[in-house]
Design a protein around this nucleic acid. Structure first.
Lengths: 229, 229
DNA sequence: ACAAAAGTGTTACGGTTACACCCATGC
DNA sequence: GCATGGGTGTAACCGTAACACTTTTGT
């Protein structure tokens, strides 16, 4: 079998992004109302097409910057979706990426500009094409990664309370966790540093703030990061 | 931003397959000597281009059938690789799939026809393009899947001994496992059925044959399949 | 009789889970 | 002084890991 590349079929390649955020209670995804045909007016993931001179990751970064205004976003490829008629307009293959952003840093103006909205993953509307499957795969992958890598911090502000962190993991796994067991385990992992500051927002007593300590984590990296309940 | 699909760049989309087999001792991958430019004569994964009227999975099935003669192969997508210059001949994006086949059923004639060879994952040669990274990602994924899904059986014949099964998992994880602990755990999972036959190949005493029991596994599917040591 | 692999249970250990009360503060 | 969330330790339990000897049979 001899290949002459030039005789092979070419296709459109798109990137779709599942953008996760955390508001203190629920894990959320950012969706936009699609403003062009087909399926204009329906809810959709943010996406765009791959250009000749960039790789998929670069395209994802570009799209994320466009829709969120943010750089340096934590991102990982989910999978590539290629059903022949997934997009009724034209044959398009799409690679999905999930991204973790700090919802506080996200600019509300952009939401108006793009008719975008945050939806709890428990109450998200039905999406165009195969985007529901993409979201579902992304959630599965995120749950796995959150259990084996210290990526949760990407969804929080630099300083956070133990309660924030716990609520985050509860939202990711859809499961209540015992307060004492959670704190014990986090401390055993030695990846957060207790600060001499308190957050007074949530209670009269106030609760201590922590920050992720990459250095400590790297030292411990002999042992595995596993966070399961 | 308004998209007119017709103005977007199109690209070549390829599929590359990491074909795993198990010879009783080592986990192996099937590689071919590439018979066309660029990189003619170098070792490579088997691959091909996506056609207009098929999805990626279909392309992978087609390629596997072509190079191994086999249908109904267990397969899973690994990831999509898109560096701009990954293929020096022309911009090509490639989606990698790993596949598990029973090495016994594989036809040696085809190996001659395609200058193909099985290599232990521990001694595989350097490959063209980014194929080494694909293999490495595939192994990581396989290890994860083997720990959480009963897919190991895809690499064995229908009937196998406990020793075969243990050697397989040892090869996948690159780690010795205690014989008694292994058997205890497999039996606790209740996914294999002991047959009234013995394999006399490996010892004078002979060892009992087992087969995977999908029915039993489905009944147990309330509990999770987890196989780690 | 001996070599070579098969087969078989129990104990110790470590990590996970379950669980309840006092503390500090603002109103 | 009381209501609200913050903070803290221990004991029971369960799964995992470590470990050695007997059995079978072909030569």
């Amino acid at each position: 079998m001899i290949h002459l590349y030039s005789t092979e079929d070419k296709v459109l390649l798109a990137v779709d992004c599942i953008i996760f955020g955390f508001d203190g209670e629920d894990l959320k995804i950012l969706l936009i109302k699609r403003d062009f045909e087909p399926e204009k007016g329906k809810w959709s993931l943010v996406g765009g097409f791959l250009k000749k001179d960039e790789n998929l990751e670069h395209a994802a970064v570009r799209i994320l910057k466009h829709y969120t205004g943010l750089d340096n976003i934590y991102m990982e490829q989910v999978a590539t979706f290629s059903e022949v008629n997934r997009d009724p307009a034209e044959r398009t293959i799409s690679t999905a990426y999930y991204a973790l952003i700090n919802i506080q840093e996200h600019n509300d103006k952009l939401n108006k500009q793009f008719s975008a909205n945050w939806f709890s993953i428990l109450e998200a509307p039905s999406l165009i094409f195969d985007h529901n499957i993409m979201v579902s795969n992304a959630i599965t992958l995120l749950r796995d990664r959150a259990s084996t890598k210290p990526i949760g911090f990407e969804l929080l502000s630099e300083k956070f309370t133990m309660r924030h962190l716990q609520k985050l993991y509860e939202a990711i796994w859809g499961q209540k966790i015992d307060k004492r067991n959670f704190i014990n385990k986090i401390n055993a992992l030695g990846i957060v540093e207790k600060l001499n500051e308190k957050d007074k927002e949530s209670s009269r007593k106030g609760s201590f703030l922590y920050q992720f300590n990459a250095a400590t984590f790297d030292q411990n990296s002999g042992k595995q990061f596993i966070l399961k309940f």
